[in-house]
Each structure stands twice: as C-alpha cells, then as structure tokens.
Nucleic acid binder design. Structure first.
Lengths: 248, 248
DNA sequence: CGACACATTGACCAGACTCAAAGCTAGTGG
DNA sequence: CCACTAGCTTTGAGTCTGGTCAATGTGTCG
C-alpha cells in the first residue's frame, strides 16, 4: 500500500464526481481546495459506528469497505459494498445520527473530508450539490436492486447478480478486466449481504463452479461465462449508471 | 375525494419539506410560485412506467402509491409504499430513465411539478436543494431498513415491522391515531413488498390475530398491542426521521 | 343477482437453515 | 523455513420456514 498524497485523494474525488456529472473548471478548483485527512486502516475495522454522529465524510482510496447493521443474536446484515472511488457516509451530511455502521473489509486507505467544508462547497456550488445528490440517488438505486434480489431471486440468482454488480463496479474504476477481479469477501460476508447462511453460500458456489460459471479461489474471481451469469441473474446494469452522466 | 386547489398542493409540499428541514420565508415563497398540475387517478394505475423518462416529479395529495418492479414470470417486487405528502420520483430529476415503475394503490390525487422548475428552484436555493436531498436520503434509509427485514427477519417479524412503519408514516401526516390506520393493501401487495407469497402472508396474519397483536378487516388496521409489535419486530423508528429536522 | 377480486384452508414440497465435524490456507513467530 | 494457529471452506444429516397447487369461502360493486 503506497502513501497517498492529498492531491491524489482529491483527484480521485474529482474523477468520481465526473463519472456522476459533468463538472466546470471552477467546480474542480473548488474541490481541489478541500481539506482532507488521509488514513490507513486495517482490515475489518469500523470507520463509523451505528449511533455515531460523524463529522467527516469518507472517500475510499484503496481497499474495500461495507455498510452493515448488527441485530439481535449476532445477526448481521450487510447493506452495501464499497470500492475505491466511493464516497461513504454522504448521508451523514444531512442525517446526523448513523443508523448503521461502516467498516473496512480489507486493509484500506481512506480520505476524510469535514462535513463543514462539504456543506459550504455544496451551498456555494449548486452543480456540485446536484452531483453529490445524484451520487446518493445512485446508491439508492443499488439498494432497490438489492431489495429485488432479496425478495424475488433465488440464492443462486442472487449470488450471480452480486458478482455481476461487483465486477462492473470494479471495472468502472479500472480494478477489473478480462472478466476477472479481486474478491476479498469471505463466504460469510456474502451470506450476510444476501440474507443467507455461509453454508448455503458455499453450496451455491459449488454449483456455480460445477456449471463452469465462475472460478473463485485465493480471493480472485474469474467469471468463466459472463453472458450466462447475466442471463441467470436477469442482470441489467442500468441501475449502476456507469455509462451516462447527468446532463450538465 | 374533494377538488384540490394548487395552493393547497404547494402547502402540502411546504409542510413536507418543513418536516424534513427548516425553511426560510424566501424559500417558502419560492415554493409557492412553482407551477403544479393536479390530477385524479384511479386505483392501481401506473403513474410512471419502468423505462420512461419522466419530465415531472409527483407529490401525493391523497391516497396511496407504491414503487415496484416487474420481473420474469409475472414476479413483482414492491420497493416502497407512499402516502400523502410523499414526493415520488425525485430521483428522476437526476437519473433520467426510470428503472422501476410507480403506481397508485388506491384512488389518488397527485400534483405534478415540472423537473425544469424544480431544477431551477434547487439551483437558486441551496437550502431547498439540501432539503430535497435530505428527503431522498431518508428514502434510502427506508430502503436499507427494508433490506434488513428481507435479509434477517422472519416473515412474522417482517410483517410486524411493516405495520409499525406504515402506522408511524401515516401518523406523521395525521392519517392515523389511537393505534389504528387505513390499510388498503391486499395480502398480495404485502407479499410482493416482503418477498413472500400471499398464502404465507395470510398465515402470518392469522397468527398475528391469534396472538391478539392486530385486528385487520375492511381495509382498517388496528394495532391491539403496539409495544409487543415493536418488540417482536425489533422496530426502532429512528430511520424514519420523523422527529428531528436537519439543522437549518 | 352475478361476477370478480380477495381471503382462507389443506396437503404436500423444496429451498435454505442448523449443528457438527473435518479440511484448507495464509499469516505468524520461532 | 517450518510448525502453529486462527479463520475460512467444505461436507453430511436432519429440520423447518415458507412455497406450490388447488379448492373453497367471502365480500363488494355494478
């Protein structure tokens, strides 16, 4: 893991927002003047905890993170996965108290940006406010797609759908290609995201291997039959909004 | 159903936003000058369809609506329920193409507000942009809570949780009280929202009646044991953000 | 009054869960 | 460089929640 200078962190933020909406030079300059604090985190470390009132938003520069909530009897529900370029916790800008937690899944490098600065930035630059807003709308679209998977897809279809989603998210930030990507999730993580048990995830993965859809070992996922994976999970990438940007 | 003049529609929008964030007089005036088109809709009528590119947002003045997506083999997943005061389709402001549909559940009166006017309004009034943004963040919090229910709650707990949520949402807009509220949903609607079958919903409702938790007939829900309902569903109303407003 | 949508019931089935026991594997320290 | 360990994965047997199919009630509205 390399040291990450502030400029590169803000560059990542600019690239992220440009993938979401067109920016003006002035807006780019405004972002470049944001204060950031870079931090290295271990794997499986909380970034923000349920009940906290965060004072910073957090941009992932390297590594994976997730949003989760603990319930009674040790039950955990993972609500989303996040990869480099994702801005976590934008909702804390407008909803002070966290109703869930954020944690790293792998070793990670994150940049913290004060709420105060972001509030000022968005108040002064309506175009940036719209861009951040759009980013949270895309997040919501992903939540909706997960709801659909939870409600109406079988375990097999659901796992397939998740793999399609993660591959495309990683591909969009240059971390995947040629139908292969890193996959640091344990079977327990996948189970907690999909509302299933690790044992059942294991069986589903066996079946996916048996049908030569995927290879998954040493934290590396290879999708052997992309079209088939799309087909069985009825995956339609539109909700990820990876291509189109909002009109300027 | 009474005729609804434009002013009362915008009054409803102002009340809604004031439940979300504090507004200034100027912001209230700006809202009052928005153009609106009021429309009466039948029950079970699409408002916006999957794939559409809407040009208006839509505010529910009377009646219930839902967000849903149709899948293969006639499967339907309902993604959210909406009651008077809710602004649907804010995401279409920044994400042009719908990835799901919106429909009425009952006869309804809705107000349509042009995107154009809302974009101008939010560009000119950062405080209103923040209020709308916050509203969509609360929507996202509800999606997350539904994910938790889908993933880690039993059918019984899930139904109980939904009833708590709907009761409080209706209570917040003065349409429920004394632990009773209208409940126009069919058992099939509930099933499609919760990812279950109508038959199973029926059995769960039988059990809830047997345990004297609820009475449900003629489209009226009476919660006979509120505390118990909260307890079994581990319901925590925080995510609905009904009390607190964002600081001005 | 009739029709249609909605609710209810029963019998049987299946996908996913539980519990428990082994196997692996990557990282650690000696 | 190897042995140890902790965490992860795999497997099996039995169970249970929720699904399926199909029939029968029960409103409610024109």
């Amino acid at each position: 893991m390399h040291p990450v200078p502030d400029q590169s962190a803000l560059g990542m933020l600019i690239r992220k927002l440009e993938s979401v909406a067109a920016l003006t030079d002035e807006e780019r300059r405004a972002i470049k003047s944001l204060p950031v604090r870079i931090q290295n985190l271990d794997a499986r470390q909380d970034i923000v905890h349920d009940g906290d009132q965060p004072t910073h938003c957090c941009l992932i520069l390297d590594g994976w993170a997730c949003r989760y909530k603990m319930l009674s009897e040790g039950k955990r529900q993972i609500l989303s996965f996040h990869v480099p370029g994702d801005v976590l916790d934008l909702q804390s800008l407008h909803i002070p108290t966290m109703d869930h937690s954020l944690a790293t899944l792998t070793k990670a490098v994150v940049a913290f940006i004060p709420h105060e600065s972001l509030r000022e930035l968005t108040a002064r630059h309506p175009g940036l406010a719209a861009a951040f807003w759009r980013d949270t709308l895309i997040d919501a679209a992903v939540f909706r797609e997960w709801l659909i998977s939870m409600g109406r897809r079988s375990a097999f279809e659901h796992v397939a759908h998740l793999f399609c989603e993660l591959y495309l998210k990683l591909h969009a930030v240059g971390l995947a290609g040629d139908h292969r990507c890193p996959m640091p999730l344990t079977q327990t993580d996948i189970a907690d995201a999909l509302g299933l048990t690790p044992v059942h995830i294991n069986r589903v993965l066996q079946e996916m291997r048996g049908r030569t859809l995927i290879t998954l070992r040493s934290r590396m996922l290879v999708i052997e039959a992309w079209d088939e994976l799309l087909r069985v999970s009825e995956f339609n990438p539109t909700y990820l909004q990876l291509e189109k940007r909002a009109a300027a």
